[in-house]
Nucleic acid binder design. Structure first.
Length: 426
RNA sequence: GGAGAGGUAUCGAAGCGGUCAUAACGGGGCUGACUCGAAAUCAGUUUGGGCGCAAGUCCACGUGGGUUCGAAUCCCACCCUCUCCGCCA
């Protein structure tokens, strides 16, 4: 959500931004908002003055009755009744206009960062940098599920029987590896100064509708029957929810948090659970980074967050690259976004393992997350989030890159302490 | 699950149909005085949001309705928090 003042004062800038995102169909929204806003403000003034009158006269009635002037009081009552009925119509209009403005404001995209490359869709995303040598070994790398099965580390058949498609049993060393990666990532982030947080895994409907659109909610969130609770799709939901409708002291900032949570997703819609294996599933676990900071610091944090993920994968000897989202592929709430992709020697291409986003003040404006300076000035905070690691998906990259020809999996040094000193999975 | 209490500003808390919601009273914060400095003391100041060029004005007492000329205050529904008992990782 953008500042409505931007539409009032610099509508051209808002239109340009819509064009940059190849959403020309939304251009009329700008003029609609300008028109509705004018009418809304007029309605406010009219209603306010009526409310003011109602209040003044009502107070007088009290006095008149106190003085025993019944007749005058009755006259005044009639006057207020007339005002109140007039007010009812204007208030209805006021509410309607406000709702119409809000509906449109939610559709108008956030002003993107000037550094975002322009392009209509994800084919125009721009590779920024590669880290590590994307090696293609001279033996064939099996499908990740086959690798796991050979190591007796996964049971998808049983999971389908028990829970359905999109779930898994991890067992033995693979399960341990999964936990090791999470523990390691947690410590990795703590070492970089982030505060470790374990948030609620279920949140209220009110919070859900605050952090995502209705369509997203329908397609992603599992609802608990008979309760006003939803399973989180990512810890970002509960982490950002924590700050809804708060005013933070400027000297508390920045909040640099790293949170662990399981994530539950329906994955309804375009993709479904088509992909076999553990690439796209209903339940996975994730270590996340969340930053709430001052506006001028968000570009700096954006870079640092993305670098954290890159560094993390590099300590596990997985080649990665960063890919910047072009304007057309960027979600409407985001100012700038970078995907981190891990190398798949089997497919001989990179695939998404994490996503780093700067939401600017869009999320904060929508959720009323404000900052107060010592001198009393207030403004909206900037929020960022980034995947540190989502183990099931990263296991794919991990296994493919650390597999030896004889079928054993090498465990990188940094993970060994979390694996009881093991160097190999055989 | 049973019983009770309660949701008012940064915190505690008063108000329980109009003349204190620019929120009593107390604490905290900030500014100033005194002081070499601090503590203590004294004085002042301190909610958020909308509209308006401004003067000013409106909204918010958990949420949503209702009654009334007028609602923090009365009525209805819902939400949440706390305490005790029970149950239980």
């Amino acid at each position: 959500m953008i500042d409505i003042n931007l539409i009032r004062n610099q509508p051209e800038l808002v239109r340009e931004n819509i064009k940059k995102k190849f959403q020309d169909a939304k251009l009329p929204l700008v003029d609609e908002v300008i028109d509705l806003d004018l009418r809304y403000r007029a309605a406010i003034q009219q209603a306010d003055s009526l409310r003011s009158k109602r209040r003044t006269i009502s107070k007088q009635i009290g006095k008149l009755i106190g003085q025993g002037k019944q007749e005058e009081a009755e006259e005044a009552k009639a006057e207020v009744t007339a005002i109140v009925s007039e007010l009812a119509d204007i208030e209805a209009m006021e509410g309607q206009l406000q709702e119409q403005i809000r509906e449109r404001m939610l559709l108008i995209p956030q002003i993107i960062d000037p550094t975002v490359p322009l392009g209509p869709d994800d084919t125009h995303n721009v590779e920024i940098e590669r880290f590590g040598e994307p090696v293609v070994p001279d033996f064939e790398i099996p499908y990740h599920v086959d690798i796991m099965e050979r190591l007796r580390g996964i049971d998808l058949d049983a999971a389908r029987k028990v829970s359905g498609n999109g779930f898994y049993y991890l067992t033995g060393d693979i399960a341990r590896l999964h936990s090791a990666i999470l523990s390691y990532s947690r410590d990795f982030m703590i070492d970089r100064g982030f505060t470790y947080v374990i948030p609620p895994f279920m949140i209220r409907g009110e919070v859900v509708s605050g952090v995502m659109s209705f369509a997203e909610m329908e397609n992603m969130m599992y609802k608990i029957e008979g309760e006003d609770l939803y399973l989180i799709g990512t810890s970002e939901h509960s982490m950002i929810g924590r700050f809804i409708d708060t005013i933070l002291d400027a000297d508390e900032l920045p909040y640099t948090l790293t949170s662990y949570s399981p994530c539950f997703r329906k994955e309804v819609g375009a993709h479904g659970i088509e992909e076999r294996g553990v690439y796209r599933i209903h339940q996975f676990e994730k270590q996340e980074m969340i930053v709430v900071c001052k506006p001028e610091e968000s570009p700096m944090w954006f870079g640092r967050l993305a670098q954290n993920t890159v560094d993390f994968f590099r300590t596990l000897d997985i080649p990665v690259r960063t890919l910047e989202c072009c304007s057309g592929d960027l979600a409407d709430l985001k100012v700038k976004s970078l995907d981190v992709e891990g190398w798949s020697p089997r497919q001989q291409k990179y695939f998404e393992v994490g996503s780093c986003s700067n939401l600017g003040d869009a999320q904060a404006r929508r959720l009323q997350i404000r900052v107060k300076e010592k001198d009393g000035t207030r403004y909206f905070a900037h929020t960022l989030n980034n995947t540190c690691v989502a183990p099931p998906r990263m296991l794919i990259a991990f296994l493919e890159n650390n597999l030896w020809e004889d079928g054993t999996v090498r465990i990188p040094e940094v993970l060994r302490p979390y694996m009881g000193g093991k160097e190999l999975i055989v």
